[in-house]
């Protein structure tokens, strides 16, 4: 049986010579992401800005959104957004954070329930007060910063600092552009988006590590080879794996995006974007960046013996 080869064997694509193209593209991506973020801002969910979110399902056929809007706008609760959610019977109601303390949020929830009464099923009611939303925001920020920091330290420890720099540039690129796409599309940015961003960070670095591992191996094997050639070779050798893994992950994520339901859609979207951008950045940013750092090539006797030791240990597995 002839097996499927997504990447033809012996493929020799030249990535390094096009590095300027990639760098320009990525720079544009970053700049426009930051611009979009500062102009549009993010559409923060209630996790981060506080407020009320209710998912209701009409018990009497398709929901009359205009009617709901009429009823709710008379309550004087400030900005109220009402949209269809997945099915015609279902509606997502979002109400801005109420002025005042946590009790004001409570009263608003009650006011909405009093107006909509029992004609709807309350599938989800969430409210986050000002205190908690601030904390959640800080926690999210800390989690992402620490994750990037911890990954940097790990790469530093396992590789040399040049690799660490390359990996972190790629990582930050992925995180910023993910935020950019959320700002562009105005998709809700909430706690599970932060979870997605962190997973993207893990995935992206995973890809980068695999290619870097090969670069390091080839640096030892071919001490005389031109660096650009060597980097190209490393990318091409691992390209089949990179594509395979991206495809399997993408298969699972697409299933989740299409079939996983409305609640999880934002999360799966972020992840799909992350897989695409993470794969791109590993190959087209992380590796070409290495050409700018002086990689040590020959005086590695000490480290080599250490690696061999590790290999012996692992060989016994």
């Amino acid at each position: 049986m002839k097996h499927l080869h997504l990447v033809p064997t012996g493929l020799k694509l030249d990535f390094i010579s096009k590095k300027i193209l990639f760098f320009v593209f990525s720079a544009l991506l970053i700049v426009s992401s930051i611009a979009l973020f500062s102009v549009n801002g993010l559409n923060y969910g209630i996790d981060f800005k506080g407020g009320i979110m209710m998912e209701v399902r009409s018990k009497t056929g398709p929901a009359d959104i205009a009617d709901y809007r009429d009823k709710l706008s008379n309550l004087g609760l400030g900005e109220v957004s009402i949209q269809e959610f997945g099915e015609p019977e279902e509606v997502l109601i979002r109400i801005q954070r109420q002025e005042g303390d946590e009790k004001a949020q409570q009263r608003a929830v009650q006011a909405v329930k009093d107006v909509l009464t029992d004609t709807v099923e309350y599938r989800r009611t969430e409210f986050v007060g000002p205190k908690v939303s601030e904390e959640l925001f800080m926690d999210g920020l800390l989690a992402v910063s620490f994750a990037i920091g911890a990954i940097l330290v790990y790469i530093w420890f396992r590789f040399e600092w040049q690799f660490g720099m390359g990996a972190v540039v790629a990582l930050i690129h992925d995180v910023i552009s993910t935020i950019g796409i959320f700002a562009l599309l105005g998709m809700e940015f909430n706690l599970s988006t932060v979870a997605a961003v962190l997973t993207i960070a893990g995935y992206s670095i995973n890809d980068t590590v695999v290619v870097y591992d090969r670069v390091r191996e080839n640096l030892r094997k071919y001490k005389k080879m031109d660096l650009a050639e060597l980097l190209n070779m490393s990318i091409n050798e691992t390209l089949s794996r990179t594509v395979m893994t991206s495809v399997t992950t993408m298969l699972a994520l697409l299933a989740l995006y299409i079939l996983g339901g409305e609640v999880i859609r934002g999360f799966s979207f972020a992840m799909i974007w992350g897989v695409v951008i993470g794969t791109y950045s590993s190959i087209c940013l992380a590796v070409p960046l290495l050409t700018y750092f002086a990689l040590r090539r020959s005086d590695d006797e000490e480290e080599e013996s250490e690696i061999e030791k590790v290999e012996k240990e692992e060989g016994a597995v």
């Binding site: 620490f146 994750a147 911890a150 790990y154 706690l191 893990g202 670095i205 695999v210 290999e311």
Partner: peptide
């Protein structure tokens, strides 16, 4: 070796998510 390196990084992200997530 590659597999371990690649998975440890994702594990780091998971641990931090647990620490800061709710």
């Amino acid at each position: 070796k590659t597999i371990v390196d690649a998975n440890v990084t994702t594990l780091i992200a998971a641990v931090l998510l647990y620490e800061f997530g709710s």
